[in-house]
Simulated scan of single mutants.
Amino acid sequence: MSDASEQRERDAARLTRHAGLGGLEMLAARYRDHAYALHTHPTYVFGVVVGGVEKLRIGRRSHLAPAGSIITVNPEDPHDGEKGCASGWAYRTCYPDVVLMREIADDLELPGLPMFAEGILQAPDLARAFVRAHRLAGQALEQEAAMLVVLRELVNRFGDGKGNIHASDGGEAKRRFRLYGELIESDLAAGFDLARLASAAGVSRFQVIRDFHRAACMTPGQYLRDRRIRAASVLMRTDMPLAEIAVATGFADQSHLTRVFKTIKGLSPGAWRAAA
């Protein structure tokens, strides 16, 4: 068996989307050798480990998530993931957007969006219900109802209802970080270095590094890569060729985009695009 064939047997991922839940992305994956690079989502991330152990960082905290664990990640929280045991891990995840989570918060009469203080939760009944709902692919109405019920219960038990992901912070570091982000978003294909960011904010390169660490728990390079992949994901919902998307979002070529995309999304651009 070739190395590529062995890799496919070890790592497998399938992404689906549910139209009735606002295009909710749902991933079923088994990984032995794959490792997620540090990244963020504009959405929430909820998942249940169904086999093995995942080792992951969420924000500044590191976790081990054995089978049966529920994983929760708030929007924009940096996180990664890799095997926590020799056999790797298998899990089912979904990525609810803010609109869906606000609907749930309103139904529960919460004062704001639900935020989750603990990255790993132990609630066996909820974990089982999540997996059951996730497995109802092809049964649209049943899956829609089952997933809404389990997400509502997850929020009801563990969401604090105090979140406002658009809240502003008047601190100088936060203002500088917003400036860095605006500069990067304005031209993702541009070459960036610390000197350019430092000059824009009127600070030293060392201060730029500290600002990214404090505001995003990321290095400037990790943040730039994350934003490029997020922009590429949006363009992949169109019929724009992958080679053109790579150039438009700052990658050297399509192969470079493919390599980085898989470390962030867990599957190839082609497979991700097919699910879209």
Rank of each mutant, 00 (worst) to 15 (best):
S2H: 02
S2N: 06
D3L: 15
S5P: 15
E9L: 13
R10K: 10
R10Q: 11
D11Y: 05
D11V: 03
D11I: 01
A13R: 11
G20K: 06
G20F: 06
L21Y: 00
G22W: 10
G22F: 05
L24N: 02
L24P: 15
E25C: 10
M26F: 14
A28T: 05
A29I: 09
R30A: 01
R30Q: 10
H34Y: 09
Y36Q: 01
A37D: 13
L38W: 05
P42T: 05
P42K: 11
F46K: 04
V49K: 13
V49P: 11
G52K: 00
E54T: 07
R60G: 08
R60N: 06
R60P: 14
R60Q: 10
S62H: 15
H63F: 13
A67G: 00
A67Q: 11
I70L: 15
T72S: 14
V73S: 02
N74E: 08
D77N: 08
D80V: 00
E82I: 09
G88A: 00
G88V: 12
W89K: 07
A90D: 13
Y91G: 09
R92H: 13
T93R: 05
Y95S: 15
P96K: 06
P96N: 07
D97G: 04
D97E: 11
V98C: 06
L100A: 05
E103A: 04
E103N: 14
I104Q: 08
I104R: 09
D106F: 03
D106S: 08
L108K: 01
E109L: 05
P111E: 06
E118L: 02
G119I: 13
I120E: 01
P124M: 02
V131P: 12
V131F: 06
H134E: 10
L136H: 03
A137W: 03
E142M: 02
R152T: 00
R152V: 04
K162R: 01
K162M: 01
N164V: 01
A167Y: 00
S168F: 12
D169E: 10
E172N: 07
A173S: 15
A173Y: 14
Y180C: 04
E182L: 08
D187L: 05
D187V: 05
G191L: 15
F192R: 14
D193C: 09
L194N: 10
L194E: 08
A195I: 13
R196C: 09
L197T: 14
A198I: 12
S199G: 09
S199F: 06
S199Y: 07
A200N: 08
A201T: 12
G202S: 00
S204F: 04
R210E: 14
D211I: 04
D211N: 10
F212L: 02
H213C: 13
A215R: 11
A215Q: 12
A216H: 07
P220Y: 06
P220Q: 04
Q222H: 07
L224Y: 12
R227D: 01
R228A: 08
A232H: 01
V234C: 14
L235P: 04
M236C: 03
D239K: 09
D239R: 08
M240L: 15
D253R: 00
Q254M: 04
S255Y: 05
S255A: 07
H256K: 06
H256D: 06
H256P: 11
R259W: 04
R259V: 12
R259S: 11
V260Q: 07
F261W: 08
F261L: 02
T263V: 09
T263K: 01
I264E: 05
I264V: 13
I264A: 06
G266H: 02
